[in-house]
Amino acid sequence: NITYDSTPEDVKTWLQSKGFNPVTVNSLGVLNGAQLFSLNKDELRTVCPEGARVYSQIT
């Protein structure tokens, strides 16, 4: 699982392990844990089509 202390590499690995598509992995894999957790559902949806699914995994 990812935490606020996760590195971008951790986030990328976590996204891949959850089966998100490469677009999602590449879009969000540049963020660290704190940055990812700071995004709300609408912001995640704006960044990638699977944003709502990512949001449900981190809340």
Results as ranks from 00 to 15, higher is better:
residue 1 N to L: 04
residue 1 N to D: 15
residue 1 N to V: 06
residue 1 N to I: 11
residue 1 N to C: 15
residue 1 N to R: 05
residue 1 N to F: 06
residue 1 N to E: 15
residue 1 N to A: 09
residue 1 N to W: 03
residue 2 I to H: 00
residue 2 I to P: 06
residue 2 I to L: 12
residue 2 I to F: 03
residue 3 T to D: 14
residue 3 T to S: 12
residue 3 T to F: 12
residue 3 T to P: 00
residue 3 T to G: 10
residue 4 Y to M: 10
residue 4 Y to S: 11
residue 4 Y to Q: 15
residue 5 D to P: 01
residue 5 D to V: 10
residue 5 D to W: 06
residue 5 D to L: 11
residue 5 D to Q: 12
residue 5 D to G: 09
residue 5 D to A: 14
residue 5 D to K: 14
residue 6 S to G: 04
residue 6 S to K: 01
residue 6 S to F: 01
residue 6 S to P: 00
residue 6 S to D: 03
residue 6 S to H: 02
residue 6 S to W: 04
residue 7 T to R: 10
residue 7 T to L: 05
residue 7 T to P: 09
residue 7 T to C: 10
residue 7 T to S: 12
residue 7 T to I: 06
residue 8 P to D: 05
residue 8 P to E: 07
residue 8 P to I: 13
residue 8 P to R: 10
residue 8 P to W: 02
residue 8 P to G: 04
residue 8 P to T: 10
residue 8 P to S: 14
residue 9 E to M: 07
residue 9 E to R: 10
residue 9 E to W: 06
residue 9 E to F: 07
residue 9 E to A: 13
residue 10 D to F: 03
residue 10 D to M: 10
residue 10 D to I: 05
residue 10 D to G: 08
residue 10 D to T: 08
residue 10 D to S: 08
residue 10 D to N: 09
residue 10 D to K: 08
residue 11 V to N: 00
residue 11 V to D: 00
residue 11 V to E: 03
residue 11 V to L: 03
residue 11 V to S: 02
residue 11 V to I: 13
residue 11 V to K: 01
residue 12 K to V: 09
residue 12 K to R: 12
residue 12 K to F: 05
residue 12 K to P: 00
residue 13 T to P: 02
residue 13 T to S: 12
residue 13 T to F: 05
residue 14 W to R: 02
residue 14 W to M: 04
residue 14 W to I: 03
residue 15 L to S: 02
residue 15 L to Y: 01
residue 15 L to I: 02
residue 15 L to A: 04
residue 15 L to C: 03
residue 16 Q to W: 08
residue 16 Q to I: 14
residue 16 Q to C: 12
residue 16 Q to T: 14
residue 16 Q to P: 01
residue 16 Q to Y: 08
residue 17 S to M: 12
residue 17 S to G: 12
residue 17 S to I: 05
residue 17 S to L: 13
residue 17 S to H: 15
residue 17 S to Q: 15
residue 17 S to C: 13
residue 17 S to N: 11
residue 18 K to C: 12
residue 18 K to L: 08
residue 18 K to S: 13
residue 18 K to P: 03
residue 18 K to V: 09
residue 18 K to F: 13
residue 18 K to G: 09
residue 19 G to P: 00
residue 19 G to T: 03
residue 19 G to H: 11
residue 19 G to Y: 02
residue 19 G to R: 07
residue 20 F to W: 02
residue 20 F to L: 02
residue 20 F to S: 04
residue 21 N to G: 11
residue 21 N to E: 09
residue 21 N to D: 09
residue 21 N to W: 02
residue 21 N to V: 05
residue 21 N to A: 10
residue 21 N to T: 06
residue 21 N to M: 11
residue 22 P to Q: 14
residue 22 P to I: 08
residue 22 P to G: 15
residue 22 P to W: 08
residue 22 P to N: 10
residue 22 P to S: 11
residue 22 P to D: 14
residue 22 P to F: 09
residue 22 P to R: 13
residue 23 V to W: 08
residue 23 V to I: 14
residue 23 V to N: 10
residue 23 V to K: 12
residue 23 V to D: 14
residue 23 V to Y: 07
residue 23 V to S: 07
residue 23 V to F: 11
residue 23 V to A: 12
residue 24 T to D: 02
residue 24 T to Y: 00
residue 24 T to S: 05
residue 24 T to V: 07
residue 24 T to L: 03
residue 25 V to W: 04
residue 25 V to N: 01
residue 25 V to S: 06
residue 25 V to H: 00
residue 25 V to F: 04
residue 25 V to R: 05
residue 26 N to R: 13
residue 26 N to D: 12
residue 26 N to L: 10
residue 26 N to Y: 07
residue 26 N to H: 06
residue 26 N to M: 11
residue 27 S to R: 11
residue 27 S to F: 07
residue 27 S to G: 09
residue 27 S to L: 09
residue 28 L to R: 01
residue 28 L to Y: 00
residue 28 L to H: 02
residue 29 G to N: 01
residue 29 G to Y: 06
residue 29 G to T: 01
residue 29 G to W: 00
residue 29 G to V: 00
residue 29 G to C: 07
residue 29 G to P: 00
residue 29 G to Q: 04
residue 30 V to I: 10
residue 30 V to Y: 07
residue 30 V to P: 09
residue 30 V to H: 15
residue 30 V to Q: 06
residue 31 L to N: 04
residue 31 L to K: 06
residue 31 L to F: 15
residue 31 L to A: 03
residue 31 L to P: 02
residue 31 L to Q: 03
residue 32 N to D: 14
residue 32 N to W: 05
residue 32 N to F: 04
residue 32 N to S: 15
residue 32 N to P: 05
residue 32 N to H: 08
residue 33 G to C: 00
residue 33 G to L: 00
residue 33 G to N: 02
residue 33 G to I: 00
residue 34 A to R: 14
residue 34 A to P: 09
residue 34 A to H: 08
residue 34 A to M: 12
residue 34 A to E: 14
residue 34 A to I: 07
residue 34 A to T: 10
residue 35 Q to G: 07
residue 35 Q to V: 04
residue 35 Q to R: 08
residue 35 Q to T: 09
residue 35 Q to F: 00
residue 35 Q to N: 06
residue 36 L to E: 03
residue 36 L to H: 03
residue 36 L to S: 01
residue 36 L to T: 02
residue 36 L to W: 00
residue 36 L to R: 02
residue 36 L to C: 01
residue 37 F to D: 03
residue 37 F to K: 10
residue 37 F to R: 09
residue 37 F to A: 08
residue 38 S to D: 09
residue 38 S to W: 02
residue 38 S to F: 04
residue 38 S to Y: 00
residue 38 S to T: 14
residue 38 S to L: 06
residue 39 L to H: 04
residue 39 L to E: 04
residue 39 L to V: 05
residue 39 L to W: 04
residue 39 L to Y: 13
residue 39 L to T: 06
residue 40 N to S: 07
residue 41 K to P: 14
residue 41 K to L: 13
residue 41 K to W: 10
residue 41 K to M: 14
residue 41 K to D: 10
residue 41 K to V: 10
residue 42 D to R: 11
residue 42 D to A: 09
residue 42 D to S: 12
residue 42 D to I: 15
residue 42 D to T: 08
residue 43 E to F: 08
residue 43 E to C: 05
residue 43 E to L: 04
residue 43 E to A: 13
residue 43 E to T: 11
residue 43 E to K: 11
residue 43 E to Q: 10
residue 44 L to V: 10
residue 44 L to E: 03
residue 44 L to C: 06
residue 44 L to Q: 01
residue 45 R to V: 15
residue 45 R to N: 15
residue 45 R to S: 14
residue 45 R to D: 14
residue 45 R to T: 14
residue 45 R to A: 14
residue 45 R to E: 15
residue 45 R to Q: 13
residue 45 R to W: 10
residue 46 T to Y: 07
residue 46 T to F: 08
residue 46 T to N: 15
residue 46 T to P: 03
residue 46 T to R: 15
residue 46 T to D: 15
residue 46 T to Q: 08
residue 47 V to F: 04
residue 48 C to D: 06
residue 48 C to Q: 04
residue 48 C to N: 01
residue 48 C to K: 03
residue 48 C to W: 03
residue 48 C to V: 06
residue 48 C to Y: 05
residue 49 P to M: 08
residue 49 P to A: 12
residue 49 P to Y: 05
residue 49 P to I: 04
residue 49 P to Q: 10
residue 49 P to V: 09
residue 50 E to T: 00
residue 50 E to S: 02
residue 50 E to W: 00
residue 50 E to P: 00
residue 50 E to M: 02
residue 50 E to A: 01
residue 51 G to N: 02
residue 51 G to Q: 04
residue 51 G to K: 02
residue 51 G to D: 05
residue 51 G to V: 03
residue 51 G to L: 02
residue 52 A to K: 11
residue 52 A to E: 15
residue 52 A to W: 06
residue 52 A to H: 14
residue 52 A to G: 12
residue 53 R to L: 14
residue 53 R to A: 12
residue 53 R to F: 06
residue 53 R to I: 10
residue 53 R to T: 09
residue 53 R to G: 12
residue 53 R to P: 05
residue 53 R to N: 07
residue 53 R to Y: 07
residue 54 V to E: 05
residue 54 V to Y: 01
residue 54 V to H: 01
residue 54 V to P: 03
residue 54 V to W: 01
residue 54 V to G: 03
residue 55 Y to D: 10
residue 55 Y to L: 10
residue 55 Y to F: 10
residue 56 S to I: 07
residue 56 S to G: 12
residue 56 S to R: 14
residue 56 S to N: 14
residue 56 S to F: 08
residue 56 S to H: 12
residue 56 S to E: 14
residue 56 S to K: 08
residue 57 Q to E: 15
residue 57 Q to A: 15
residue 57 Q to S: 13
residue 57 Q to G: 07
residue 58 I to P: 04
residue 58 I to S: 05
residue 58 I to A: 07
residue 58 I to D: 02
residue 58 I to T: 05
residue 58 I to F: 04
residue 59 T to H: 12
residue 59 T to I: 12
residue 59 T to Q: 09
residue 59 T to V: 11
residue 59 T to N: 11
